[in-house]
Design a protein around this nucleic acid. Structure first.
Lengths: 153, 153
DNA sequence: TACTACAAAAGAATGTTTTTCCGCAATCCG
DNA sequence: CGGATTGCGGAAAAACATTCTTTTGTAGTA
């Protein structure tokens, strides 16, 4: 059930590059391929590993702009939150969305092509949602760090 | 050089699950494995695909808390930004860090175990940086959406 | 039409990796 | 001690990726 230090090293390696072969991983941690294979399957089965994905280069694909949004909802309406959540999940421009504590309700991370595309998104999709009361947008000028890897220690 | 619609479908599939076999991808898009293989290698070579990773389950690993931070730096010091950037890149708790427009300088996404761990991080690592003038923390109460996949259309 | 050149894809052969199976050694426990 | 469990290594089998060769389709040209 619990992870030992071998499991953690495997997770570190797979977070860095999920295409390492079992032999490569086995060499790194001084084991044969069998235990590496069994441990990875166990980590998948028990839900430590959610999924395997490839990360694309935003700029190459013309998605040069990241915007973080703070959103406040109109609390009057009973179903504001459920409706809003549902709408957000279906917007491909929104990569992250969380309910947060503090002086607004939601925190969003939006990826689009450029300022014009963001304007379209803002006017026709985001502020078009009935439950939205207020939006503050913070444009990313420079991305210092982006990582999907969490510490497993 | 430019992507056609077949390339885009391949990228969509790999963003969803990078462990689809070439045969599975080939079947999905009605091709044989050879062109699928060649296209994927081309997409890697030309930099459309940055890397392959596995995504772990935060909660399973005890990292239950996400905090977004707004940070303002002390503009007096000349090398504030470079020092700050360097320090952030080396902090495993920080998954994302960007310079943003607006009434503060940086936007951070931090992942830690719990409130106590965040307090430790805040006091001993983040506010310990000389260049930091002000920090606002927004605790995530509920994660509505998290995706690494961008639209390739 | 006939020929050439080129690009993209299919099919077959080869090499590599994953997966399964079996056995061994260490550990725990009644 | 005896039996069960766990973690590991080695080897064979199966699945997969990779490479090479051939085929197909398209466009240009005489």
């Amino acid at each position: 059930m619990a992870l030992d230090s071998t499991d953690r090293r495997i997770l570190e390696l797979l977070q860095e590059n999920s295409q390492f072969t079992m032999k490569e991983i086995a060499n790194q941690i001084n084991l044969s391929v069998t235990p590496v294979h069994d441990r990875i399957r166990k980590l998948e089965r028990e839900g430590y590993i959610d999924k395997y994905v490839c990360l694309l280069n935003r700029r190459k694909l013309g998605k040069s702009l990241i915007v973080y949004c703070n959103i406040t909802l109109d609390k009057q309406k009973r179903e504001s939150f459920e409706d809003f959540n549902q709408a957000i999940v279906n917007m491909s421009e929104v990569l992250e969305c969380s309910v947060v504590s503090g002086n607004f309700d939601y925190m969003l991370k939006v990826v689009v092509e450029d300022g014009e595309a963001y304007n379209q998104f803002y006017q026709h999709k985001l502020s078009a949602l009935k439950s939205v009361l207020h939006i503050s947008s913070y444009f990313v000028i420079s991305e210092i760090k982006y990582s999907t890897g969490i510490s497993v220690r």
